[in-house]
Structures are given as structure tokens and as C-alpha cells.
Amino acid sequence: MFGRRVPVQTVLLFSVLAALVCGVLAVYFGLHHSWIAALILGVLAVWFAIDALRARSWKKK
């Protein structure tokens, strides 16, 4: 932001953590039959996992 980039390691770390938290919460809500919350959190978990993979590919370059 404002001409400075966030380090790739930071993006990777926070994306992995967010994916794990969202995934665990999605399973929790799914087991308690709250399907809308489970669906939203599942989509977010996939979103953050893809972001982590993209950050990992940036790190390899």
C-alpha cells in the first residue's frame, strides 16, 4: 500500500493461518448443521488456500 509491498512470507503465513481457521470453523458449523455459515467459511478457506499457493509461487521466483 502506498508504494510499499507486503513481504511474500507475511502473505503466505497469514493466508495459511486464515485458511486453517476458516476450514476448522467451516467443519465446526457443518457438524452443527449451520449450512450457510459452513458454506461461507468453506469458500473463504478455499480462497485463502489459493492465495497461499499464489504467494508460494511468488516466493519461488
Rank of each mutant, 00 (worst) to 15 (best):
residue 1 M to D: 10
residue 1 M to I: 03
residue 1 M to C: 10
residue 2 F to Y: 12
residue 2 F to D: 03
residue 2 F to H: 07
residue 3 G to K: 09
residue 3 G to Y: 08
residue 4 R to Y: 09
residue 4 R to P: 03
residue 4 R to W: 04
residue 5 R to Q: 08
residue 5 R to M: 11
residue 5 R to C: 01
residue 5 R to I: 05
residue 6 V to M: 10
residue 6 V to I: 15
residue 7 P to Y: 01
residue 8 V to R: 00
residue 8 V to F: 05
residue 8 V to H: 02
residue 9 Q to D: 12
residue 9 Q to Y: 05
residue 9 Q to L: 07
residue 9 Q to A: 03
residue 10 T to R: 13
residue 10 T to K: 10
residue 10 T to H: 01
residue 11 V to A: 05
residue 12 L to I: 00
residue 13 L to D: 08
residue 13 L to Y: 10
residue 13 L to M: 02
residue 14 F to H: 13
residue 14 F to Y: 13
residue 14 F to G: 04
residue 15 S to Y: 02
residue 16 V to D: 13
residue 16 V to Y: 02
residue 16 V to P: 02
residue 16 V to A: 02
residue 16 V to G: 00
residue 17 L to Q: 14
residue 17 L to H: 06
residue 17 L to M: 14
residue 17 L to E: 14
residue 20 L to S: 12
residue 21 V to N: 09
residue 21 V to F: 06
residue 21 V to I: 15
residue 21 V to W: 02
residue 22 C to D: 12
residue 22 C to P: 04
residue 22 C to I: 00
residue 22 C to R: 01
residue 22 C to Y: 11
residue 23 G to D: 09
residue 23 G to W: 11
residue 23 G to A: 14
residue 23 G to N: 14
residue 23 G to S: 11
residue 24 V to C: 06
residue 24 V to H: 02
residue 24 V to S: 07
residue 25 L to E: 12
residue 25 L to C: 07
residue 25 L to Q: 11
residue 25 L to M: 13
residue 26 A to K: 08
residue 26 A to D: 09
residue 27 V to P: 07
residue 27 V to Y: 03
residue 28 Y to R: 10
residue 28 Y to I: 15
residue 29 F to P: 07
residue 30 G to A: 13
residue 31 L to S: 03
residue 32 H to I: 09
residue 32 H to Q: 15
residue 32 H to D: 08
residue 33 H to F: 15
residue 33 H to N: 15
residue 33 H to R: 15
residue 34 S to G: 03
residue 35 W to K: 05
residue 36 I to V: 12
residue 37 A to I: 07
residue 37 A to H: 04
residue 37 A to W: 09
residue 38 A to V: 12
residue 38 A to R: 09
residue 39 L to H: 02
residue 40 I to D: 03
residue 41 L to F: 09
residue 42 G to L: 06
residue 42 G to M: 04
residue 42 G to Q: 09
residue 42 G to K: 13
residue 43 V to I: 15
residue 43 V to Q: 02
residue 44 L to S: 02
residue 45 A to S: 15
residue 45 A to N: 05
residue 46 V to N: 04
residue 46 V to Q: 01
residue 46 V to M: 09
residue 47 W to P: 01
residue 47 W to Q: 07
residue 47 W to I: 10
residue 49 A to N: 05
residue 50 I to S: 00
residue 50 I to D: 06
residue 51 D to Y: 03
residue 51 D to M: 10
residue 51 D to I: 09
residue 52 A to K: 04
residue 53 L to P: 02
residue 53 L to G: 04
residue 54 R to P: 00
residue 54 R to G: 05
residue 54 R to A: 11
residue 54 R to D: 01
residue 55 A to S: 11
residue 55 A to C: 07
residue 55 A to I: 10
residue 56 R to I: 06
residue 57 S to C: 04
residue 58 W to Y: 11
residue 58 W to D: 00
residue 59 K to M: 12
residue 59 K to I: 11
residue 60 K to Q: 08
residue 61 K to W: 00
residue 61 K to S: 06
